[in-house]
Simulated scan of single mutants.
Amino acid sequence: MSALHESKTYVPSSENLEKYAKLHDFNEALQTKRGQVPEAECFLSGPEPGQQVVLPKDVYELLVAVVDAMQQGMAVTIRPNHERVTTQQAADLLGVSRPTVVRLVENGELPATKIGRHRRILLVDVLEYQKRHETRQFDAIAATSDLDAEIPPAEFFKSVRAEVAAERANGA
């Protein structure tokens, strides 16, 4: 199998929906029994007895996210980090408008290259900007908090943000 060099979208197969559901239920049972993430190692096994390899935690979490999405009938796209994206794709990832991304590029906050009239941005640079921006947001919130009160950790703000996003997605 060759290395993945381009984006690839995986569309759930209708004949595999029952298998996705079984994987999803299996993972939920593990989380219920053991907590948020299984404490024991998880393995990828081959067709022959003894053919297995330990899955790193980040690969396990990626597989769980893929199964959850496909079980819900959603397609999943895998995109290498070295790939260049358009300003519109960067805007979609950041949740801002395309003109905002153009302004970030012009202000030097987001590196980009110009190919003809079009700007292209490394996906990894977009993701790094997103992480820096979130850190600045959390720091600003903490700085405006009452100094006598205990300042919640960044994880608290991330969980609140995730809850709000979930409510929006559910149409609340």
Rank of each mutant, 00 (worst) to 15 (best):
G46A: 11
C42W: 07
G171F: 04
K57G: 03
E6L: 09
H5E: 12
L122T: 10
G116A: 04
E167Q: 11
M74E: 06
D148R: 06
D125V: 03
E41V: 01
S7F: 05
R84I: 00
R161N: 07
V67A: 03
V164D: 03
E41N: 08
A69W: 07
L44Q: 07
L123M: 07
A142Y: 07
T113S: 15
Q71S: 10
E39T: 12
L122C: 08
P80E: 14
E155K: 05
V67R: 01
A143P: 06
E18H: 15
E106Y: 08
P49N: 11
A154T: 01
T9P: 01
P56H: 12
L127C: 09
Q31I: 02
V85F: 03
L17Q: 02
D148C: 00
A21R: 12
E106I: 10
E18K: 15
L23R: 06
D25K: 09
E18A: 15
E28Q: 13
N16M: 10
K19Y: 11
N107Y: 13
A3G: 02
D25W: 02
P12T: 05
P153R: 09
A140E: 06
M1L: 01
D58L: 13
A21H: 02
V64P: 00
V164Y: 14
E18N: 14
L147V: 13
K114C: 05
M74C: 01
H82N: 10
A149S: 14
D125Q: 04
Q31D: 01
V59E: 13
V105W: 07
P56F: 11
P153K: 10
A154S: 02
V124Q: 07
K158V: 13
F157K: 15
A40C: 12
N16R: 14
G73T: 04
T100E: 06
C42G: 11
L30T: 01
V102T: 14
V126P: 01
Q72S: 08
F138P: 00
A172G: 11
V76I: 05
A91H: 03
Q31G: 01
D139H: 15
A69D: 02
M1H: 08
E109I: 00
L122I: 12
E6S: 12
H82W: 02
I151T: 14
H5V: 12
S45W: 00
E61A: 06
T135P: 04
L30V: 03
Q51F: 08
D92A: 14
R161C: 02
L127T: 08
Y60Q: 07
Q137L: 14
K114N: 05
A162S: 14
S45Q: 09
T87Y: 02
A91D: 00
V101T: 03
A140Y: 15
V85A: 02
T32E: 08
V76N: 03
L93C: 02
E61P: 00
D139R: 15
V59T: 14
V105P: 02
R161T: 07
P80W: 14
V76Y: 04
V76S: 05
K131W: 09
M1A: 03
T144R: 13
I151K: 15
V102S: 09
R136T: 00
V126L: 04
Q52H: 15
F43M: 06
R34P: 00
V102Q: 11
P152W: 12
D25Q: 10
K19P: 01
G95A: 04
A112K: 04
F157D: 09
A149F: 15
G171S: 11
D139I: 13
